[in-house]
């Protein structure tokens, strides 16, 4: 901290960099959130989405860091002649609160850099491979120098190592959850086809019968699987509606209620279904599927004729 106080010019730079950094972070976030939502939509329950959010943050951190380096360079190039460049940018960005953590990290990093020779560092960073950027950068900052490392630096270091050693922690889980959206097409005016029903059962590792029972009970209608392994449902339904029901199905019958892992087995045991988790080993009973009360909606005359 003392060092920083000495270098007045560097402080100024810091501020500018911060704003530039924010800009990019925001852009990165926008880009990511847009791209993320598309694949997750389908089958994902709320639960995994939470996971994804966390994962996103991890991803963001990385990206931001990468971008900061580019930014540093740009800004340094820009600094001598055009300091006001950053002025218009910060407004768009400052609203973002949830990035505080990251920003803090970047601040500390930047301070370090300023102590050393700025230009050198930037060049170095550019040369380094993208993935290793963070780690090496961390090491480079305090390993060589006499000063003590800070808590933030250590924290970041441990996270970097974790990410490096278990790429599956960040990406693997998410990929498991990516599911094709249900293909829902209207057949005539009164029926709906859920074309990839069997395929979705396979991705979820569930018996078609089980999912079928759930869908029909929830939608309060009837239907069956036809020769082309598509599900024909009575009534008009949109893809979004089917997706909603699927999401609830996955939440209740696919993902573990304890650890949210989708790696589970559904077992029937004395008329109760149990969800056995392969990841954490938990086993819990799940709600049985009941269609419950069904109101008479068809033509009463026809029903009367049938029963009479």
């Amino acid at each position: 901290m003392d060092d920083d106080m000495v270098f007045d010019p560097s402080l100024k730079k810091k501020k500018k960099k911060k704003t530039g950094f924010d800009m990019d972070a925001a852009l990165a976030e926008q880009g990511e959130s847009a791209s993320m939502e598309a694949p997750v939509e389908t089958g994902d329950v709320d639960v995994p989405e939470d996971d994804n959010l966390d994962l996103d943050n991890f991803g963001k951190k990385k990206k931001k860091k990468k971008k900061t380096f580019f930014n540093l360079e740009e800004i340094e190039n820009a600094l001598p002649e055009t300091p006001p460049i950053e002025e218009p940018e910060p407004q768009e960005v400052e609203d973002i609160d949830d990035l505080d953590l990251d920003i803090d990290f970047s601040k500390t990093k930047k301070k370090k850099k300023k102590k050393n020779n700025l230009d050198e560092h930037v060049v170095e960073d550019d040369v380094k491979g993208e993935d290793q950027e963070n780690v090496e950068d961390m090491h480079g900052d305090w390993v060589g120098s006499d000063r003590d490392y800070t808590y933030d630096e250590l924290l970041e270091r441990v996270f970097d190592i974790m990410r490096e050693k278990n790429p599956s922690m960040v990406a693997g889980k998410k990929q498991k959850f990516i599911m094709r959206p249900p293909q829902v097409v209207r057949i005539g005016t009164k029926k709906t086809s859920f074309a990839n029903f069997t395929e979705i059962c396979k991705t979820l590792h569930r018996q078609p019968k089980h999912l079928l029972d759930f869908l029909l009970a929830e939608l309060g209608t009837s239907g069956s699987v036809d020769g082309n392994s598509q599900l024909i449902i009575k009534g008009r339904f949109q893809q979004k509606q089917i997706e909603n029901v699927l999401r609830r199905y996955i939440k209740e019958y696919v993902t573990c209620h304890t650890c949210r892992s989708p790696d589970t087995i559904l077992q029937k045991d004395t008329r109760l279904f149990f969800l056995q988790c392969e990841t954490c080993g938990s086993r819990c009973s799940v709600a049985s599927i009941k269609s419950g009360f069904q109101a008479v909606t068809g033509k009463r005359a026809a029903i009367r004729a049938k029963t009479a």
Binding site: L219, G220, T221, G235, R236, K290, G292, F293, Q294, A295, T297
Partner: peptide, 26 residues
């Protein structure tokens, strides 16, 4: 039986002809 046993009030929707729907509370 069922209702009191699971203690839940089930609110359901059913499609009727056309765009018409019906809500049941069990």
């Amino acid at each position: 039986e069922d209702d009191v046993q699971d203690g839940l009030v089930h609110v359901r929707i059913q499609q009727r002809s056309g765009r018409k729907t019906l809500t049941t509370v069990q």
